[in-house]
Design a binder for these strands. Structure first.
Lengths: 216, 216
DNA sequence: CGCACACTTGAACCCCCTCAACCCAAGTGG
DNA sequence: CCACTTGGGTTGAGGGGGTTCAAGTGTGCG
């Protein structure tokens, strides 16, 4: 189920968790609200959002299967979460999580490892948002997203995107129009192909990597 | 010394650590190199840098007294670190750190808490870099920096900046010129005062907060 | 079929960047 | 003591990458 604990602990774990389903588009975490629940994604993908009062949005990440949510908080959620499609979630109470960590110290190490990986990804994203061009941002995204989403067995050059262009724009600090135009340019340049809006094929991985690194 | 462990463990801790000094400007961590050492800042401030091949830089944070460095890595450093002025550091070997964590499990919890706080800060910075204007970025920086740097007893409206305008620019995803111009505009607008280049006074905290939140 | 909604494309604009000059304080050395 | 240098900071003019505004093109679903 949760994937990060040994089989022996699985039964104990499942006793504390409550499995639930949420419909597409549901905002199951609201930024700024009391963080009383802790989630683990078991199916589907969510967008993680921070907003400004006037409606500007920044998507700070996408949470796929196996991802933990509600970890990085003091007592209120630092970001909201919305289901991109239908999702299944494991819910833990905050107290239950504490109890879990005391019972399985190895969990604490695992959480630290997860937090560490997310921190590295966040730092990479800061470089992207602060210093890369639109073209470089899209190239970086296309290379990094499959790994971040832990897409199963999709090591090939086929990327299926569960999110809209608007979501990609809010993730990369751009507008929908710029995302669309830039993808078109990468397509006409034979670097990628776009058989359908939700599917992108990498035709020239080396060039894409050069662009992402800022070398072209 | 390190500030995050109990007094009882302090002696044990100091046995494993090697205190050292570095001169101003020294790059004591190189991005991409093997991460064999773990640092704790005991004096001074460092800038944490990620770079692109063509020289573009993004400062992902400033590490002040008490800050841990070398934590958020797999086996190579994800960012470089350079001393803003003369610094003092505690060095641990990676093996020593592992031993330390086994010996004091409470350290693991502490590290998780530190990583969690850094992650929240990184997410806030993503919102800043992706969606805020230059004016909003500077306002946010002036409000958030003193807390992040854990400036002792400087709860007042006096901010002393150990870094240059170029560092601020690389931290906020701007250029030196834009930082300078924007500060000038905030100054003529009576929101801040700048008695010297390294010192900034907040004259109207409420307005500054409104600007930072994107409400003005 | 037709209404949304997502996506694409075009034209004009703007905020920030680039390039350049200048100011100022702190060394440095003759 | 002063000319010279160096590094950080400020200010101005012009240009460009991305945004904004607007229209058009699919495309899935009731």
């Amino acid at each position: 189920m949760c994937g990060v604990v040994e089989d022996a602990d699985l039964t104990r774990l499942s006793e504390m968790a409550v499995e639930c389903e949420v419909a597409a588009g549901t905002a199951f975490i609201e930024e700024g609200q009391a963080a009383d629940t802790f989630f683990n994604v078991t199916a589907g993908t969510a967008r993680l959002i921070k907003s400004l009062p006037d409606g500007r949005r920044q998507i700070i990440g996408f949470a796929g299967v196996g991802h933990f949510l509600g970890l990085a908080v003091s007592d209120i959620y630092a970001f909201g979460a919305e289901a991109l499609g239908p999702m299944r979630l494991c819910r833990f109470s905050r107290a239950g999580l504490r109890q879990l960590l005391d019972e399985f110290p190895v969990m604490e190490q695992r959480l630290l490892a997860v937090a560490r990986d997310e921190l590295v990804a966040a730092q990479e994203q800061m470089l992207l948002l602060g210093r890369k061009t639109a073209r470089e941002r899209l190239a970086s995204f296309l290379l990094a997203y499959p790994r971040a989403a832990s897409c199963p067995a999709r090591t090939e050059d086929v990327i299926s995107l569960p999110m809209t262009r608007a979501d990609i724009a809010d993730y990369l600090g751009l507008t929908v129009e710029t995302v669309s135009r830039t993808l078109t340019r990468l397509r006409t340049g034979r670097v990628i192909a776009v058989p359908s809006a939700a599917m992108i094929l990498i035709r020239d991985r080396a060039t894409l990597a050069s662009i992402a690194a800022g070398e072209v």
